[in-house]
Design a protein around this nucleic acid. Structure first.
Lengths: 240, 240
DNA sequence: ACATTGCATGTTCCATGCAATATGGAATTA
DNA sequence: TAATTCCATATTGCATGGAACATGCAATGT
């Protein structure tokens, strides 16, 4: 455990800063799954009182990151394969819906530009550079940007919120003491996966621009389904 | 404003009881849309301190019922037609997914019994009784029970949570000072709508029991789409 | 041995006082 | 008059102490 960590002052309230700090602790594995979170301990560690800690925990609870028991407090949610796969089911359904809606109602010019640029950058990363942890991270961020751009374009808070919730689980999965580095395990497979993902993205974008709603939806669902299967394989790896 | 209201002691903590009390105030129209919620006022009215009120407001905010501004507080979220229709888009997609998953993996015996019983009761309500506000309310509860049974059977917290969020909006819609009583406006239309909903339910159940995933999904989506269109008509009624 | 009851302990839950700040209008200026 | 600055005020945000309560263990009884 690190000593008293200073909170970023960039967030307007201590509660929000505290929530982000605790979230980071969970995702980094500093706080383990199933561990009870004591308010006083967190408050001391973060240099705030128990009040903003309590608010932050409630916030993360509503986000689905923690579980709660009256007069016992909060702890990092534990989950099994069914829960993880279920999260992917919801996610692919909702992101598929987003693509169809965008295709049917048309994409804004700004998003169209962003998506095209994103695809060009992603292609460059994948095919003009060596596959190192650094390029892999750049690819991961570009990948996220693509999905976020479409979510934003869909302009549906319920859809966005639902997707964001399902995204919490996979990072927790990797927050184990010995996170699984797929790139180290299967560098070629990992790169092939990324290239396939890029081609999926391109086809989704093509379908949207052509106004092919059903195709855009199906393609996005298939795209995320691939990730779902990968997650399942990793999960079985961890269990065995 | 009523005098100091005693909170139900049935909930384990004051915060939760307070959240439910405030939710009821919003849905009953006692608190109007766009109105700022002052913590001290609510605390006095409910006979608690500001702490549980604050927690309750944060809770309802995360549920999507309120909006929040730093150092200003919370107020009942205002919404437009796009947001409401978007909520229905998400809801029909997710409940459709639930039906498909259940059809594919098979329904538990307990749920099968419950669904069959629910359909029998609903049919009785609709075809063997006069259409009064009282029977209408009984139908509404039976209708809700059907949807909840399938949500429970799907056993996917992300799906359930997403649907519950979308359900918050329509009640707010009716929380205006002069709620729209569709039954009073169009009693025949209202009953016809309910009967159509019943037949939809029956077909969904039939498809699920037959293991027809795609049909179950499509039928549930169509079923909720009908409600979506009704909501849209009501909304235009309110604006004009 | 096993179940049940009572209790000590640690933690959450809540009340309250003070500090921080967003806001609306008065005072000021061009 | 219109725009701008400044400030009083109301309200939230936060800290802290004490009440309430779940839990695990020891004592007691069957």
């Amino acid at each position: 455990m690190t000593a008293k960590t200073a909170l970023k002052a960039s967030t307007p309230t201590r509660s929000q800063a505290t929530a982000e700090a605790i979230r980071a602790m969970i995702l980094s594995g500093e706080i383990e799954r199933g561990e009870w979170l004591r308010a006083q301990v967190l408050a001391d560690r973060l240099g705030v009182s128990r009040t903003p800690v309590s608010e932050a925990l409630g916030f993360l609870y509503k986000e689905g990151l923690l579980e709660y028991r009256v007069h016992r407090g909060y702890r990092v949610k534990t989950f099994d394969a069914d829960l993880l796969l279920g999260a992917f089911d919801v996610r692919l359904t909702l992101e598929g819906l987003a693509c169809r809606l965008i295709a049917e109602r048309g994409m804004s010019h700004a998003t169209a530009i962003l998506v095209r640029d994103n695809l060009a950058r992603t292609e460059d990363i994948l095919f003009n550079h060596e596959w190192t942890p650094e390029t892999r991270e750049r690819w991961r961020l570009a990948n996220l940007e693509f999905h976020d751009a479409l979510l934003t374009e869909a302009a549906n808070p319920y859809l966005t919120e639902g997707v964001l919730r399902t995204r919490q689980l996979p990072p927790i999965l990797n927050s184990a003491k010995e996170p699984i580095d797929t790139n180290e395990l299967f560098p070629r497979l990992d790169r092939t996966f990324s290239q396939q993902a890029f081609r999926d993205h391109a086809r989704v974008a093509e379908a949207i621009e052509a106004g092919q709603g059903a195709r855009a939806e199906a393609m996005m669902k298939e795209h995320i389904f691939t990730t779902r299967e990968a997650a399942r394989r990793i999960l079985t790896l961890m269990v065995s």
